[in-house]
């Protein structure tokens, strides 16, 4: 009797845990509500199967427990039953896949009016770049990276001069404005992810990756790194602050442009060092040995 009861408890316990668990996703703050809906749908379809299977074996172990002298039923195959199960399963799978692909199509189709900004990752901090008045980001290359030009912007590219640079880890975005995030890393793989936006993407040195979303709620949202990038991975934090449009503009206007930061660097060039990032703003290098 123990076995059927325990199986029953495991099945039901799982369901109960699911419903009473205080650990669940945080309220969404972007346009990706469809992703949440797809998850809920998947929960229903798969949940029914899970509970069904567990209850069925619990019942089998009760109903067909060993009796001396009894013989099991002999029916090696039942094509009809197997066909039905195949068809039902296929329907269930399609019911999850179709909406999933449909939402994915949204996810990979960037709207025309999306504004672009760039996230640049390095071990283990986040920096950001907005296009300046010209609306265009300057081209970049790892070989331009140095003390005065940590973003590696091509100094000869006119488009880059007015780029706005933010290097303290906190970035502001205007509410309800679709944005395409361009992702770049200067050293290793990282992953720019914001839980409340339900979106994330790896950054791969050597290429630019991207994703898009629309922030829909004013507030502060933690940026976490979701790709193991060395000892400091767990402490690689940033912040996205979603503002009203006017607050955002005010904030942006205060940030330095590339030209300004170059000029500034020239004025105190005597303090130059041969390392690019002399100040350790992330978990200390000692840990890394």
């Amino acid at each position: 009797m123990l076995v059927p009861i325990m199986l029953l408890l495991v099945g039901l316990g799982t369901v109960v845990f699911h419903f009473v668990s205080p650990w669940w996703w945080t309220p969404i703050a972007s346009n990706w509500g469809y992703i949440d809906d797809t998850i809920i749908l998947t929960f229903w379809v798969t949940g029914v199967v899970f509970v069904g299977v567990v209850l069925f074996i619990a019942w089998c172990t009760y109903r067909y427990r060993y009796q001396k002298g009894k013989k099991a039923d002999y029916e090696p195959e039942n094509a009809k039953l197997e066909w039905w199960l195949t068809i039902l399963t296929t329907i269930g799978v399609a019911a999850m896949l179709a909406p999933g692909l449909w939402v994915w199509n949204d996810f990979v189709t960037v709207p025309e009016d999306a504004a672009e900004f760039e996230v640049v990752a390095k071990q283990w901090e986040w920096t950001y770049r907005f296009p300046g008045k010209d609306g265009k980001l300057g081209t970049t290359d790892a070989k331009y990276i140095n003390d005065d030009n940590p973003f590696g912007i091509n100094p000869k590219d006119k488009n880059g001069r007015d780029d706005i640079l933010i290097d303290d880890g906190e970035v502001h975005l205007p509410i309800n404005q679709p944005v395409k995030v361009l992702l770049r890393s200067i050293d290793v793989l990282h992953d720019f992810g914001i839980v409340q936006f339900r979106a994330k993407m790896d950054m791969v040195p050597g290429t630019v990756t991207s994703f898009w979303f629309t922030p829909t709620r004013i507030g502060e949202f933690d940026v976490l790194c979701f790709e193991l990038c060395g000892v400091g991975h767990y402490a690689m934090r940033g912040m996205v602050v979603v503002d009203s449009v006017s607050d955002f503009q005010a904030w942006l206007d205060e940030q330095p442009t590339f030209a300004q930061s170059l000029a500034e660097a020239e004025s105190d060039s005597d303090k130059s060092s041969n390392r690019v990032f002399s100040e350790a703003s992330s978990p200390d290098r000692e840990i890394a040995r």
Binding site: L7, Y34, I57, F107, V195, R198
Partner: peptide
Amino acid sequence: IVTFVNGGITGLFLGNVVVDVPLSD
């Protein structure tokens, strides 16, 4: 059977590309 069904089911979450986005890593 119980654990495999449980683990297999969550694989359907992760395999369904858009659901994987918030859950991956």
